[in-house]
Write a protein that binds this DNA or RNA. Sequence first.
DNA 1: GAATTTTGGGAAAACGTTTGCCATGGCGAG
DNA 2: CTCGCCATGGCAAACGTTTTCCCAAAATTC
Lengths: 355, 355
Amino acid sequence: MDIREIARRAKVSTATVSRAINRVPTVDPQLAKRVWKVVDELGYYPNTQARALVLGRSRIFGLIVSEITNPFFPEIVQTFENLAVENNYEILITTTVHDPKRMESSVRRMIERRVDGVAILTFGMEESLIEHLRFRKVPLVFVDVGPDVAGIANIRINYQNGIRQAVQHLAALRHTRIAFVTGPLHLKSAVARRDAFKSAMTEIGLPSDLIVIGDHRMEGGMQALLELNSLNERPTAVLCSNDMTAIGVMREAYEQNIDIPDDLSVVGFDDIRLTEFTIPPLTTVEMSQRELARIAFHALLNEVERDSSSREPQKYELNTSLVLRRSTALAPSGRNSTESSNTKASRKKPAAALR
Amino acid sequence: MDIREIARRAKVSTATVSRAINRVPTVDPQLAKRVWKVVDELGYYPNTQARALVLGRSRIFGLIVSEITNPFFPEIVQTFENLAVENNYEILITTTVHDPKRMESSVRRMIERRVDGVAILTFGMEESLIEHLRFRKVPLVFVDVGPDVAGIANIRINYQNGIRQAVQHLAALRHTRIAFVTGPLHLKSAVARRDAFKSAMTEIGLPSDLIVIGDHRMEGGMQALLELNSLNERPTAVLCSNDMTAIGVMREAYEQNIDIPDDLSVVGFDDIRLTEFTIPPLTTVEMSQRELARIAFHALLNEVERDSSSREPQKYELNTSLVLRRSTALAPSGRNSTESSNTKASRKKPAAALR
DNA sequence: GAATTTTGGGAAAACGTTTGCCATGGCGAG
DNA sequence: CTCGCCATGGCAAACGTTTTCCCAAAATTC
């Protein structure tokens, strides 16, 4: 069933049908009504691929994501999709699962499907691939640290702010030995977070040498706690490069019978929804995924709308800030020691607490 | 840059370029090589919308999901996407967020984009909408309980098996008062799970009257525990209609200082990845999301491949089974009561345990 | 060496839209 | 009454592919 079928039944030309459907004002209301009647009766829906072909616009935005199973992303995808339906766009999602081949195919698929713009949420994408997209003048937006080339919209994230707040919060709780669990260091965003930690620590005169490398996943967090636990001078607080890591840390703490927050304070990063429901609820640095998605979508929309010849894409910025929950507490050494040891002594299994 | 550009530069016709690209064997290897050279040099990628137009196949599978932020879905989407790239398909995801308008637009968008098939992962979809798709002969597969009409591939899930195992496991741990937290009862799948619970309880001669209504989200789980806690005769174990509910239950138990599993055993359903990392790790009924996605994808692929005129779609089935972790234990009354009360007395805050 | 078969590639139609251009008809003004 | 203008809608080209003929040339047969 195509536009010609409608034209035939409404006894008009396909041009009129097209104009009626697209609500071109010059078409006579009488005629338009006749067309719409037939359209509804037959349940006709225009073929968007044919339309895209002539329009040169697909009304599809691509979304390249590292892996959708990472709870950080679904919230972004959902917000992006909400905005997409509002604006009559579709979203084409591809995942890279940290595989160079998949990154390549992601880019290829975006091009083959002629998307109108791509939001790249994958940290650590090869620049040569991006060049493919730039070459075709596909509007691009990088969530988080992207390559610093002209013509690409970058969303700068103010890591420093939230992380400084987190460090100061811990310091106020008398923590002095504060560890940091990084993400995979080939990711610029992970490096940025670590550096923000370092400088925040230096700022308040604390050493920032207690750094262990994680992988932004729960497994890495578990491993990290094990490493920290084997140290001579154990930390009393640990800041994690993302929430999944923090969840891993807490999970391993449970295993080791280390009480969170009494024996060890834990702070996450991202503020994924889950952090309200961990045990205990996680104190973390918020980086609003919804806001991120909103910015990304509108950035893309702006790029598509504007003459590609005109000015440079805008710069966008997202702030981060600490949200307090219950995974942080006064450092053990700062507490009334009697109460403290009582607490531990009363635990079911012998406490193998950090310090 | 189109196929004609390639044809011009390779000094062949567009027909030959098309054939070379699609690896039609009749084309002379020499020529093919020449074509490929130009293709690579220019970085040409065929326009899939034009291709779809003439082929009458878009190589897109639609995926209608209730909300991607529910951790049950990302695993499915990821597996589906993996299979898609392997088979040169794209996936078009729409979410309904429990909104009838969005369900409608989801269906409309699937049709407009001319997807080759749709997997419906939304529980509780209006039949009239589905009729729209069936009318257009779009291959359909329902994950979980769908409408029982001819021509639609249904994946039957054996809830009974896993839930029976769970109930028997709890009974073996001497639990007699076992509660069940349902999902939203307008969903067929939620009803099916509850009914499986009822019949499993009856089977071993236990009463199945301790049923409270949840919403398949953490909030509902928290609420449910509160309700159960206010009962005169409190349960010693609770089975949840999905894992998110169980996580909510455990979260509220933490709030109430009820120990899991010593004071209360908790069992989930779904076995989402997260359950390995809850505190304590959750005993749950596995319903493999990967397997589900695999079945759905292949069902769709089968439908697309076969002559639509031929036989009925196949029937598919998925089993469920209990996976033991650490959120279940001997019922409190079944334990040495001294040890039991010792344990509780030693808790930091006074225990307000269920029973 | 001619007749026949095989092989390979080109011309053009088709897929379902949108839109620039033009024809038609109605209407007001002179 | 005639001219010109405006509003409306139709014709046909274009978007970028695939594929069906069909024909030319090469290979095979006798």
